[in-house]
Simulated scan of single mutants.
Amino acid sequence: MKDLQYPLHFTFRVTSLSNDFSAKDANGNSIYYVREKIFTWRDHIMVYRDESKSEILYELKSNKLIDFQQTFTITDHTGKVIGKVRRKSIKSLWRSTFNLMDPQDKLDHTIKEKNPWVKMWDGLFGELPLVGMLSGYFFNPSYILRNDQDEPIFEIIKEPSFFGRKFTVQKLTDKPVDDERFVLSLMLMVLMERDNG
C-alpha cells in the first residue's frame, strides 16, 4: 500500500447506479476507486488504483449469501490474504460492530459505532414526510477502529450532506500500524453503513 497522507476522504458518486466511491488523500490526490459489484449472489467489492478501473489492487468477497455473521476476505491482486472482516449483524440494530482478523484468522481489532443514538434518531427523523430528507445533513455517525488493548487507531466520520455521502478518515495514533488492512476494512465498513446518517 502506498504511503497515505491523512486525513483521507471517501466520496460516493451520486449519479451512479452502483455502490462506489473515490478515495483521496489529504492533498486531494486520488488513491483508490472502490466499486461494489451488482447483480452477484455474494457481495463482491473491487478496489482499483483509480476511476479508469484499469488496474485492480484488492478484492473483498463475502462468504455468505445473506447478511448474518457475514465475513469478508480481503485479498491483494496476487490472491494473498490481507485479512478478514466480520460484521456482527445481531447487534447492528443498536450499535454497528465489525470484527477485524489478521490473515491467520486471529481477531485483533474492532470497528464500532461511536454513538448508537445517532442511528436511532436518524431512523426516526428519516420517517417524517419531507423533512426526513434532511436527516443525512443533521445525523452523521462516526466509527472508531480500536486494537485489542482498546486503543483508538482510526476514526471515520460521516460528513454533513443532503444528497451525496462523504466520509473523512483520521489516523489517531503515531505508532506504526497495518494501514493497508485497516483502510481496506474501513472502506468495507463504509459500503455496508452508507445509508446510516
Rank of each mutant, 00 (worst) to 15 (best):
D122K: 01
T11P: 08
D150M: 09
T97C: 09
D20W: 06
F98H: 03
W121F: 15
L145E: 01
V131R: 01
G164V: 12
E151C: 05
T40Y: 06
V190W: 06
Y58G: 00
R13K: 15
L145W: 03
Q70C: 07
D122R: 00
R194G: 06
W121P: 00
H77P: 06
L57K: 10
L188G: 01
D195M: 08
E180K: 14
S92R: 10
D102C: 07
S135F: 01
R86V: 04
R13N: 15
W117P: 00
E180Q: 15
I38P: 05
P176S: 07
D195C: 08
S142A: 13
R194K: 15
I66Y: 10
S30D: 09
T110G: 09
L57R: 09
S89Y: 13
V190Q: 02
S92P: 06
I111R: 04
Y6A: 07
H77F: 09
I156L: 14
V177Y: 04
D76F: 09
P160Q: 03
F125Y: 13
D50S: 04
M192Y: 00
D178A: 13
F162Q: 04
T78E: 11
G164W: 08
P160Y: 03
G79A: 12
T110R: 14
S30R: 11
E36P: 01
K114H: 08
V14K: 14
K175L: 14
V14C: 08
R35F: 08
T73Y: 03
P103T: 03
F182H: 01
K2R: 14
T97V: 14
F68L: 11
D179M: 11
N115S: 14
P160V: 03
R86I: 04
F154D: 00
S92T: 09
M1R: 09
Q70V: 05
E159G: 01
A26K: 15
M187H: 03
Q5S: 12
G79H: 10
G132L: 02
L184M: 04
D3L: 13
Q149E: 10
K88V: 12
M189G: 10
E180T: 04
H109L: 09
M133W: 15
P116V: 02
Q70Y: 08
N140H: 02
F12A: 15
T71D: 02
F138R: 00
K175Y: 04
P141K: 02
L4D: 12
S52W: 08
K80E: 12
I111Y: 05
K37H: 10
